[in-house]
């Protein structure tokens, strides 16, 4: 058995008085796709940077690929692929040269690099851009090149910090597709995101991070089952009546309703039976102006756990 890709115990990062990562416990198994989900400032990047051995651990224990980041940083980095939150491609070089020099930084022989570049250009769907200046690429292409660059050393663990933030929906889907491909090849992926759909799409397991702490952990399905109901009813009563009506809704204390989140423009009702709940509301004279029945998502889990929405 390969050792876990990452084991963290009480892992802590402080910047002066600010505690960015507050004693987290995480184990990422070899071969799994693991996500850190959290709002901006939750401490995701700080955690990733410690794992990538480019940020000293303030406190707690951390092992990456079975090795100690403090002593074996160079060896660990030779087996990591890193996609940072902000692209840091070499804008003075072409697409191909970016991959070449990155291979050289890794100490790989040129013949090996040349071989891999062709494969990676195909993987990243950038074959016709091979000799283009990086500056001229679209955001999605740059992101794919950054991922290709992270794969030049055939890493055992790939760390992706918000891989699709800022991309348009189509570019996001292309990228997800590439990540699924990596997953199916058995590469261990560790990613951060503040998109629920991304975590649900990609992650085998995830942790929800808030203010530097882990507030929930599990598979997307487990977390939904554990923290919310499978079905969700959203009801809108119109701006003027919303607050009063949703207060009344809560006061009804309907038997099939587990909980209610009251937002400014809508109430989110976690219920075992959305149809029955809607009928019951009608019986009590609470006919919503609009309603929506849907399956629960991780967005709901986050809302339940923190009382806040993840992306405003």
């Amino acid at each position: 058995m390969a050792p876990p890709a990452v084991v963290a115990r009480g892992l802590t990062k402080r910047f002066g008085d600010l505690t960015a990562v507050d004693g987290i416990d995480v184990t990422v198994a070899a071969g799994e796709t693991f996500a850190f989900l959290g709002a901006n400032g939750a401490g995701k990047t700080s955690a990733m940077r410690m794992i990538a051995t480019v940020s000293p651990v303030t406190d707690g224990e951390l092992s990456v690929l079975g090795l100690d980041p403090h002593h074996d940083g160079q060896v660990i980095r030779s087996r990591l692929g890193v996609v940072p939150q902000e692209d840091n491609l070499d804008l003075e070089l072409t697409v191909r040269e970016n991959l070449l020099v990155y291979g050289l930084y890794h100490g790989l022989p040129r013949t090996v690099i040349a071989h891999r570049i062709d494969d990676l250009l195909a993987f990243a769907q950038l074959e016709d851009k091979a000799d283009a200046e990086v500056d001229a690429l679209s955001g999605g292409m740059k992101r794919r090149l950054t991922i290709a660059r992270a794969l030049i050393n055939e890493p055992d663990l790939v760390i992706l910090d918000e891989p699709t933030t800022g991309l348009d929906p189509q570019a996001r889907h292309v990228l997800w597709d590439r990540l699924h491909e990596l997953r199916s090849r058995g590469v261990t992926l560790l990613l951060t995101t503040h998109y629920m759909d991304e975590a649900e799409q990609l992650a085998d397991r995830l942790v929800v991070m808030d203010h530097g702490r882990i507030i929930a952990e599990g598979s997307p399905t487990d977390l939904i089952v554990e923290h919310v109901t499978r079905e969700v009813l959203e009801v809108r009563f119109g701006t003027a009546r919303q607050a009063e009506s949703s207060d009344r809704l809560v006061a009804l204390d309907l038997p099939e309703v587990e909980s209610v989140e009251q937002l400014a423009e809508r109430a989110i009702v976690y219920t075992r039976d959305a149809e029955a709940t809607l009928d019951a509301l009608g019986d009590h004279g609470l006919v919503p102006r609009g309603h929506l029945t849907r399956r629960a998502t991780l967005e709901d889990v986050f809302l339940r756990l923190t009382g806040r929405q993840l992306v405003d």
Binding site: P3, L65, G66, V75, G107, V187
Partner: peptide
Amino acid sequence: MSAPTTTPRSVASPLR
């Protein structure tokens, strides 16, 4: 992608 090994693999090309 190679599977992780238990013994640390040396940094890709041994430094002369």
